[in-house]
Amino acid sequence: MKTLVLYYSTYGHIETLATAIAEGVKQVEGAEVVIKRVPELMPKEVAKQAGAKLDQDAPIATVDELPEYDAIIIGTPTRYGRMASQMANFLDQTGGLWFQNALVGKVGSVFTSTASQHGGQETTLVSTIVNLMHLGMTIVGTPYTEKRLTNIDEVMGGTPYGSSTIAGGDGSRQPSDDEIEIAKSQGRHVAQVAMAIKKGTA
């Protein structure tokens, strides 16, 4: 069972969650995971001036490779309550796969990052899920068996629609230990569901 963690990360927060999600996938016996990212649309000089993290290890994904995976977990920061244009641009190129029903029945899941607690985490996650449903994917979230979702002792991310983090207005806040663990839980749960579907036991 092969999983793709596909992400776009401007400042590294989504990249960190992607790594945690991949760790969760690896905890499931027989599950393989690949981390890739979508292309940056900003010119390099503009990205540098914006303080973007350009030295990310993950290779660039192609649309044509998506059918190779049993599960695809998509990570994108929030832009005005929706996915970043870099991820939208990539998903907009999947029309051929949609026409061929190439992703129907694959497992899909999402994760995000926002500057503030109420900066659009849930709207970004749910609106990204809509794209995956149009492609015929089976949506898997982060169930409340992950007890950290009910933690109210601190301001933090984490939703039943997918894992998340809060970056702060200046991007200085990094994913907390609880947010990392929720991301691992999501990766593990997605892999378990995808494995069950592949084996025909779901």
Rank of each mutant, 00 (worst) to 15 (best):
residue 136 G to C: 00
residue 106 K to D: 05
residue 114 T to P: 08
residue 110 V to R: 08
residue 109 S to V: 09
residue 146 E to H: 13
residue 182 I to L: 05
residue 117 Q to L: 13
residue 160 P to H: 07
residue 95 G to V: 11
residue 111 F to E: 00
residue 58 A to P: 15
residue 143 P to A: 13
residue 62 T to Y: 10
residue 78 T to V: 07
residue 137 M to A: 02
residue 74 I to Y: 12
residue 147 K to G: 05
residue 77 P to W: 08
residue 136 G to W: 04
residue 177 D to L: 02
residue 82 R to T: 14
residue 143 P to F: 09
residue 88 A to M: 14
residue 87 M to V: 13
residue 128 T to N: 06
residue 178 D to S: 12
residue 44 K to P: 00
residue 129 I to S: 11
residue 123 T to C: 10
residue 53 K to R: 14
residue 84 A to M: 07
residue 111 F to Q: 04
residue 94 T to I: 00
residue 92 D to K: 11
residue 64 D to Y: 05
residue 165 T to Y: 04
residue 139 I to N: 00
residue 175 P to S: 12
residue 180 I to A: 01
residue 55 D to G: 10
residue 159 T to A: 01
residue 113 S to P: 07
residue 79 R to F: 08
residue 74 I to E: 06
residue 147 K to R: 14
residue 125 L to K: 01
residue 108 G to A: 07
residue 57 D to V: 13
residue 109 S to E: 05
residue 177 D to T: 11
residue 157 G to K: 07
residue 67 P to W: 11
residue 92 D to M: 12
residue 146 E to Y: 11
residue 71 A to T: 12
residue 79 R to S: 03
residue 104 V to P: 02
residue 75 G to S: 11
residue 97 L to N: 05
residue 81 G to C: 12
residue 98 W to D: 01
residue 143 P to D: 14
residue 66 L to Y: 11
residue 104 V to A: 02
residue 156 M to H: 15
residue 115 A to W: 14
residue 86 Q to T: 13
residue 64 D to L: 02
residue 58 A to F: 15
residue 147 K to M: 09
residue 101 N to C: 09
residue 83 M to F: 09
residue 63 V to P: 15
residue 57 D to Q: 14
residue 97 L to P: 03
residue 112 T to V: 02
residue 164 S to H: 03
residue 88 A to F: 13
residue 138 T to N: 06
residue 117 Q to M: 08
residue 149 L to P: 12
residue 58 A to G: 15
residue 94 T to M: 00
residue 168 G to D: 02
residue 174 Q to P: 04
residue 119 G to N: 11
residue 166 I to Q: 02
residue 131 N to E: 08
residue 108 G to V: 01
residue 134 H to F: 07
residue 175 P to I: 08
residue 132 L to S: 13
residue 109 S to A: 14
residue 101 N to E: 12
residue 144 Y to P: 04
residue 92 D to E: 08
residue 77 P to M: 08
residue 93 Q to K: 14
residue 172 S to G: 01
residue 157 G to F: 11
residue 144 Y to T: 12
residue 167 A to F: 10
residue 182 I to K: 03
residue 158 G to D: 05
residue 52 A to Y: 03
residue 62 T to C: 10
residue 152 I to G: 03
residue 67 P to V: 08
residue 104 V to L: 01
residue 118 H to R: 11
residue 48 K to V: 10
residue 50 A to Q: 11
residue 135 L to K: 02
